[in-house]
Amino acid sequence: MKPFAYVKPADVEAAIQAAAQPGARFLGGGTNLVDLMREGIEQPDTVVDVTGLPFDTVDDLPGGGLRIGALVRNSALAADRRVRERYPMLSQAVLSGASAQLRNMATVGGNLLQRTRCPYFYDHASACNKREPGRGCDALDGFNRGAAILGVSASCVAAHPSDLCVALAALDAVVELRGQDGTRRVPLTDFHRLPGDTPEVETVLAPGELVTAVELPPAPVAANSRYRKVRDRASYAFALVSVAAALEVRDGVVTDVCLALGGVAPRPWRATEAERLLVGGPADESAYRRAAEAELAGASTRRDNAFKAALATATIVATLRELSTGGDPR
């Protein structure tokens, strides 16, 4: 690992100041950044440890929403009684990711900033525009089974790895950022950028800007919600496809739905087209299928990942069916 200076500021202003210098990076639980530093993909000059800052609680918001501090550990978020009751998909999404050891370390803010698990990103012998802008992308014609199919570009097809962010995208979460110019709030669905021709720029964060919290608005529909993840192993694997869904049905009609996809796009993918088609329509399988197919109509698949469009469609249908019957997923 390349040597670096380490600072642990006691207040947020000092942290933002320290991280505004070129070559500085914030450090939370370390589960992604330390790994990337050891691999030489991240080479910060200064590491600004933010785990001493007071952003480690989950607090109630008026009307039933929740404010989740950026330093809340993944395991604490998943176990929170309010999260499990009001937004079960969020707890399930967290528990479906990584291992228990990693969830005990990883923070919510760090989860938002975790980088892709595309194998070519990790391999210095391969071309990767995200690791080395302008060098090319060996994933385009390489082994791309895990690659994204929505929102991709000719520069990058890397999928976003987070489970937690998929649930946050479905739940209209808002990210609170603190920088030298003050505080701003960005919808989670606008926080991550699509690759275009600058895949190395992954978020809208300005230099030195710190994620301080994620806020969930009240969402009664989310009490009936589910996170369903499909992967090559039953546990401890990244998603091929995942679905975060919340559904309300009255008299056989869909009256409210929240839907987002993971494993298929360079950012957590809010399925707005499917949602638009579902609301007001019948709560039945053929309507679910039509909506899912419409969402996936724009898929751009490559040699090894063409199956993802069909898998995503089937997983959306299965998840909505489970939510509309309140019964067995099969």
Partner: peptide, 13 residues
């Protein structure tokens, strides 16, 4: 009391 991966933990933390 919490299980963690010591390899991804910086000792200073």
């Amino acid at each position: 009391g919490l299980r963690i991966n010591a390899c991804l933990a910086l000792a200073v933390q």
